[in-house]
């Protein structure tokens, strides 16, 4: 074990923080407190946390519609996130974005995205901008298995390869594109095989193994910072929850889902940390309580926050809106 105890605990804590946030969001949605749709990251936490552990604060990411985990792992404020889920004026997007559009440009999160594949060209652009500026930053594009079948994916990989951009493509293969099985809708067994077409390294890893995600990303980030160009990493995982909260999930059965509850990343890592005596059960309980409390505070912040004024709908489109007909 070549990791400090503190580092391992920080990974575990971050995964727990995401899980608790998502469990709370799910319940709040079912209770009718959150409008719109939410897409949960439960079961995929190791990817966001493992990737982000390999990044610096000034690196950039683009996220997806299933983006709460990315945001939290990059250092997002859960009070502002929860307020945004409620559509409150104190939220990250002042109630204009909701779950699918949470962003914090100041911490390098260039937006969740409601369009499958929509973030890939943006991350490539961030990489292009970094190259033009001549800094050592990198940009990471998170995207799902479904996005790997869009034109945006193929254009983005080719573009990033041709210009040797410092972009890391993180494919979160959770085996379902909305309700369609990835196996039935994708031409390759491993999405990382597609890297060959773009002359860049491609690797498939177990996305539920956080240390594997961290190590693989670290290597790709180093390559990108050393002007070695982009990498495609396919992190295989499983979407334990439906496509969205409330999804009737007619396309799969419970036994399939239950199988993956046994392989989910927090359970695996927790067992590892107990075996390694990095944490004991009592410390795990304390961590759990700590995040229960933080989430409770986030919910209170959101619920106590004011609604936007109706007229706030007519702000934030342009920086200079002189002469604009709203």
């Amino acid at each position: 074990m070549n990791y400090s105890k503190q580092f391992l605990i920080s990974l575990y804590e971050m995964m727990q923080k995401i899980r608790k946030f998502e469990q709370a969001a799910e319940q709040l949605f079912l209770d009718g407190k959150i409008p719109g749709f939410i897409h949960l990251y439960i079961g995929e936490e190791a990817i966001a946390v493992g990737v982000m552990a390999a990044l610096n604060d000034d690196d950039y990411i683009t996220s997806t519609h299933r983006g709460h985990g990315h945001m939290i792992a990059k250092g997002g404020n859960i009070n502002l996130m929860m307020a945004e889920l409620y559509g409150k004026v104190t939220g990250y997007c002042r109630g204009k974005g909701g779950s699918m559009h949470i962003a914090d440009f100041s911490i390098g999160v260039l937006g969740a995205n409601g369009v499958v594949g929509g973030g890939l060209p943006i991350a490539v652009g961030a990489g292009l901008g970094i190259k033009m500026k001549g800094t050592k930053q990198v940009a990471v594009a998170f995207f799902g298995d479904g996005a790997s079948n869009t034109g945006a994916f193929h254009e983005s990989l080719n573009f990033a390869s041709v210009f040797h951009l410092p972009v890391i493509f993180i494919n979160e293969n959770n085996q379902y594109a909305s309700t369609a099985k990835t196996k039935e809708t994708t031409s390759v067994e491993n999405i990382s095989d597609r890297a060959v077409s773009y002359n860049i390294p491609g690797v498939t890893i177990n996305g539920n193994n956080i240390l594997s995600v961290f190590e693989t990303t670290k290597e790709a980030v180093k390559r990108a910072r050393d002007q070695g160009g982009p990498t495609l990493i396919e992190a295989k995982t499983y979407r334990i929850k439906g496509h969205f909260v409330g999804d009737p999930s007619k396309y799969r059965n419970n036994s399939e889902v239950n199988k993956f509850w046994e392989k989910e990343p927090i359970k695996i890592f927790e067992k590892q940390l107990l075996d390694w005596k990095v944490l004991n059960q009592k410390e795990i309980n304390i961590i759990s309580l700590k995040f229960d409390q933080q989430i409770k505070e986030a919910i209170k912040f959101a619920e106590d926050s004011p609604e936007p004024y109706p007229k706030d709908a007519l702000t934030d489109l342009f920086i200079d809106d002189s002469g604009y007909d709203y």
């Binding site: 060209p121 652009g125 961030a126 901008g129 940009a139 573009f159």
Partner: peptide, 8 residues
């Protein structure tokens, strides 16, 4: 799309 990323 890359123009957007580069601007950001």
């Amino acid at each position: 799309g890359s123009a957007l990323g580069a601007a950001l």
